[in-house]
Design a protein around this nucleic acid. Structure first.
Lengths: 254, 254
DNA sequence: CGATTGATTGACAAGGTTCAAAGTGAGTGG
DNA sequence: CCACTCACTTTGAACCTTGTCAATCAATCG
């Protein structure tokens, strides 16, 4: 069976070859199946053939993948697992800027700059590929259509951030968590990772706290009320939205 | 005296001509003097000659300039005055996403999309120009250098938003206000609008509240303590940083 | 098994909000 | 020029949401 993605990868001489090649193929294939590289809901719809990768890395859960200012080997894309972009304050406070899901470009800025100004940390075990920047750029800048797609990713990234700013600035704990869950569900839906209003949620309560600007203790309490109200069921790493309508009303969608 | 900017504007047949042309020239000249179009600290360093504008508008203070979804006539750039990008929740809560100063492109997204998903509201009286999108794009996409400059603006916009997310999620009132003031001072410095640690600050306390995710009453109290501690002097629309070191320590810079 | 990590709970403190009222200042019309 | 109005600032008091501290419980892992 012909497989343009893995063909391309296998042809690229520079990537780390090992025993896990088919994993990479599978992961990137999944990415493509999901509609191309993305950030949030924006896509980079490349026709079949990806640029060559510099390398591919597998990282255990709870590791720091990138640090601010650190030189990037390539343009990082998440193949598998969950990661987060995070900001750290000097006294250790943390804020999750966004979650990175399979198929996500870590940041549009990484396409042009050789470093970023946030941390990237794995939440689960993560596989990520680093595309060769020059080739990635060349492919993008070659076609106006691709430039616009990249701008689309930038805009989506920005809209995401604006949404989060309004959430953190003006919404209370319950609303923030409700919106977090709905937002994640939307993104996972696009990847066919939601079944019957339920999906794997590998986040600790401290992750949810860092994403919503709350403390883990308070997240715990709010989750408790959401559970008691029959809105969500959360256990064993699986979140099931038991009452979507109520959750949406809480989250102030529509 | 030859003046490439106003020459260009005068040559452009499609812009609204009136009695205030020299105002436009002056405003855009100021913009150029300041280093080109920008967002935050990123610049679009166009060599002397701007693309033609579709029109130019003057708006009184406290008006809504743009609404989400509304069709944009062109690519809006602030020539004079202060405006804000703002998000509104369904129940009326407001969050200021960013302040727009003279020379600011309202949003990089406006270059490619014909609508945006936030409000733009004037704070003072505002003059803004709307560049013809096709020409603006053509000029940008024509040169790879310009594409990278545009991407630089996108990245700066994003970094701004990330910074704000961390502030709103993880910093307390005093820190947020301190950072707001320092951030504004930096931006105004680039425009030569700061003298001796003092600058015109046309914001009401409710603006500061909407920018920092606080209530106006609490902003008032915190301003009171900053004043009492001899850190700032704020009156008559002028902010003077009386003790920069203390303010920076509060703001957790460095 | 002991050790570690995360979830849960209680008691209490604090930061920030809400409501209400009074003070201030600039602009307006008479 | 004065009184009036309107928008904004300031202040107090009560309240509420969220944070802090501390202890316990549950689950996982070498």
């Amino acid at each position: 069976m012909s497989h343009p993605v893995s063909d391309e990868i296998n042809r690229s001489g520079s990537h780390a070859s090992g025993t896990a090649d088919c994993q990479v193929c599978a992961a990137i294939a999944a990415m493509v199946r999901g509609g191309g590289l993305r950030i949030g809901s924006a896509r980079l719809p490349w026709a079949g053939r990806l640029p060559p990768i510099h390398d591919r890395r597998e990282v255990r859960s709870r590791q720091t993948i990138l640090r601010p200012g650190e030189t990037l080997e390539g343009v990082p894309v998440i193949c598998d697992g969950w990661a987060a972009r995070v900001a750290r304050l000097s006294d250790g406070r943390r804020q999750i800027l966004s979650f990175l899901l399979p198929g996500d470009l870590v940041s549009a800025s990484a396409v042009f700059a050789s470093s970023v100004n946030f941390y990237v940390e794995s939440i689960t075990a993560v596989t990520h590929a680093n595309f060769i920047r020059e080739e990635f750029q060349a492919k993008l800048l070659g076609e106006p259509k691709n430039i616009k797609a990249l701008m689309g990713i930038c805009v989506a990234e920005q809209e995401e951030a604006d949404r989060l700013v309004a959430d953190l600035g003006r919404r209370r704990a319950e609303e923030r968590l409700a919106r977090l869950f709905l937002h994640l569900m939307e993104r996972l839906k696009m990847r066919d990772m939601v079944q019957d209003h339920a999906f794997a949620l590998p986040l600790r309560q401290s992750h949810m706290a860092d994403a919503t600007g709350l403390t883990p203790v308070h997240v715990n309490r709010v989750l408790g009320t959401l559970r008691d109200d029959g809105i969500i069921e959360l256990s064993g790493g699986t979140l099931r939205i038991a009452n979507l309508l109520k959750l949406q009303r809480l989250a102030d969608v529509n």
